[in-house]
Amino acid sequence: MKSMLPIRERRTSADRRKNDETIAAELAAAFAEGQIEVLYQPQFACEDGSLVGAEALARWNHPARGQIGAEAMFSLAARAGMSERLTRHVAARALDDAAGWRAPLRLSLNVTAADIAAPDFADALTAIVGQASFPPDRLTLELTEHALVRDIEGSARQLARLAADGMRLALDDFGAGFCNFRYLKVLPLHYLKLDRSMVEGIVTDPRDLAILRAIVALAGALDIAVIAEGIEREAQLAAVRAEGCVLYQGFLRARPMDAGAFAAFARDGAGGAPGDA
């Protein structure tokens, strides 16, 4: 039976399939050839500036397209049906690196909607953590609001299993899109991570500062700590510290760095004794 789709639509569909197949082949080569790089964005305690750990950030050093950032890379992986494989690849790399960090430095890993939707997500991640011999109570999983929209109850069950093993959970990019307060009720969260857009204007705009103050108060009432992202000025740091944020990260103190540079930074350049916030 002939397709009822117009010729143009059939061609477009075929082109998309071919493009997705190309992406899948390129990603497979990237895994095999070490093109996926993991960088580390240091995180600090607001109270005393001590280094507490780092967030793992993946980059794809594509031989033809140049460097592809994490958001674009995971979008491509989703099109090729390889999101879970990519997350697990990055997690294994980061955990291997972090296994050599001095205690109690923490590692933060990002997880996607596809990861959380996978029935074996909790088991697979627990196995990867065990293989790296990294203490689960020094691991934080960062989840975006978008990653949880599809099935909040299912997400809560998966995440509760990981929290029971000692892992901490952060709701990432808070304030970047719509804020579903049901997440704060249902999910076993330890942190809210403010999107950089929530801190950009806190020094100059009283309304922005008032919103920050309200979020920190709400989080405190729920026994959830607040992390400020995108701190680039001393005045911003002073403000988030004064309002009760616990951790921060941003270019003010450090930019993302490779594993060797982070190890040296933690050893020689971080200053202060690491805390366990």
Rank of each mutant, 00 (worst) to 15 (best):
R182T: 15
R182K: 15
R182P: 00
R182A: 13
R182H: 15
Y183M: 14
Y183A: 07
L184R: 12
L184Y: 05
L184G: 12
K185C: 13
K185Q: 15
L187V: 12
L187A: 09
L187M: 13
L189C: 13
L189H: 05
L189Y: 06
L189N: 13
H190S: 12
H190C: 07
H190N: 14
H190I: 01
Y191D: 03
Y191N: 04
Y191M: 05
Y191T: 08
L192R: 14
L192H: 13
L192G: 11
L192A: 10
K193D: 04
L194W: 07
D195V: 11
D195N: 06
R196G: 10
R196K: 15
S197Y: 12
M198A: 12
M198R: 10
V199D: 10
V199T: 14
E200A: 04
G201T: 02
I202N: 00
I202Y: 02
I202P: 02
I202G: 01
I202S: 03
V203D: 11
T204R: 15
D205P: 04
D205R: 06
D205V: 05
P206T: 05
P206V: 04
R207W: 02
R207C: 10
R207Y: 12
R207S: 02
D208H: 14
D208W: 14
D208P: 08
L209A: 14
A210T: 11
I211P: 02
I211H: 06
I211G: 06
I211Q: 11
I211F: 12
L212Y: 11
L212G: 10
L212A: 03
R213D: 15
R213G: 12
R213N: 13
A214I: 08
A214E: 07
I215A: 10
V216Y: 11
A217M: 11
L218K: 03
L218P: 13
L218M: 15
A219E: 00
A219V: 03
A219T: 09
G220C: 12
G220D: 14
G220K: 13
A221Y: 10
D223V: 05
I224N: 03
I224M: 04
A225L: 10
A225Y: 06
A225G: 09
A225E: 13
V226L: 02
V226I: 06
I227R: 00
I227E: 04
I227L: 09
A228V: 00
A228Q: 01
A228N: 01
A228S: 00
E229H: 02
E229T: 03
E229F: 00
E229D: 10
E229I: 01
E229N: 01
G230R: 05
G230W: 04
G230I: 03
I231L: 00
I231D: 00
I231Q: 01
I231E: 01
E232Y: 00
E232Q: 07
E232A: 08
R233Y: 05
R233K: 09
R233A: 07
E234I: 02
E234N: 05
E234M: 02
E234P: 10
